[in-house]
Design a protein around this nucleic acid. Sequence first.
DNA 1: TGCATTTAATTAGATATCGAACTATATAGA
DNA 2: TCTATATAGTTCGATATCTAATTAAATGCA
Lengths: 148, 148
Amino acid sequence: MTTKDPLAFQVFNEIGIINQLTSAAFAAVLPKGMTIAQFTVLNHFARLGHEQRSPAQLASAFQITRPTMTSTLARMEKAGLVAIRPDPEDGRGKLVSVTAAGEKMRDICLQRLAGPLAEADAVSSRETLAQLLPLLQDVRAKLDRLRD
Amino acid sequence: MTTKDPLAFQVFNEIGIINQLTSAAFAAVLPKGMTIAQFTVLNHFARLGHEQRSPAQLASAFQITRPTMTSTLARMEKAGLVAIRPDPEDGRGKLVSVTAAGEKMRDICLQRLAGPLAEADAVSSRETLAQLLPLLQDVRAKLDRLRD
DNA sequence: TGCATTTAATTAGATATCGAACTATATAGA
DNA sequence: TCTATATAGTTCGATATCTAATTAAATGCA
């Protein structure tokens, strides 16, 4: 990246590369067959306290399209990580919930992620990370608003 | 993301989401058939002043695997954006160069990216971006070192 | 009531990406 | 020189992701 590039371009370029490096490192330690996308879904349900969610709600939460979520959920259901049933209140809709196996898988992933996370936490000083977080949240919030 | 998550996790999560949002916005304005990956290659050659590069060098520059670069280059060659020839000094290797059509395509992409970039530049104050850049570069440099 | 529009989800076809396995060539060491 | 190892590139099979098009159900409005 030369310094001639616009500031925003440079920033988003760095973000892209960091995303690639960290995603690869995280994916490498996940159990065979598990992916970041699937882990993200499991993690989301853990935060929700096991409420049910529609595929559309999940897609919206992660800012991905519904076809993508359909695809990921189908794989997760096949692997027994989530249960999908028709929405009794909407003939078009479905309701997704996490299974016991899904919760267990999330715990396993968390354990395995601990190492790389600690490493990442170590290489970048907590100070740097602490400075970064609010700035990133600010940018993200503004991008979110822009999307609407 | 709850505040219970480790700092590094929160930071990388924000980075992932910002990457997704910006990538989607950029991809949306590119000409039919063009992708960010392909534009990145064209842009790289523009910076290099049209020197030739091996697929392995390109893969390394973008931190992607060689199979991925093989795939992208094959598509770009088919589209006439790059030329690929055997490396006369190494029977295993190949040399990639950008074509006139590739240069033209890069210019078109730059024009189309100007809008979204200006938008991104506007939503996030230059101050925020200016603060972010060195922090991100620091994190990226450390991650790079970690990889070796 | 009935039709048009909207919304939920899926299917199809594309690209990017990965790891694993393979081929071919180059290099190093005995 | 010969063989073992390393490197360049590809092929294969998988997942994630997108857009466009399709199906089915809900909603709105005349």
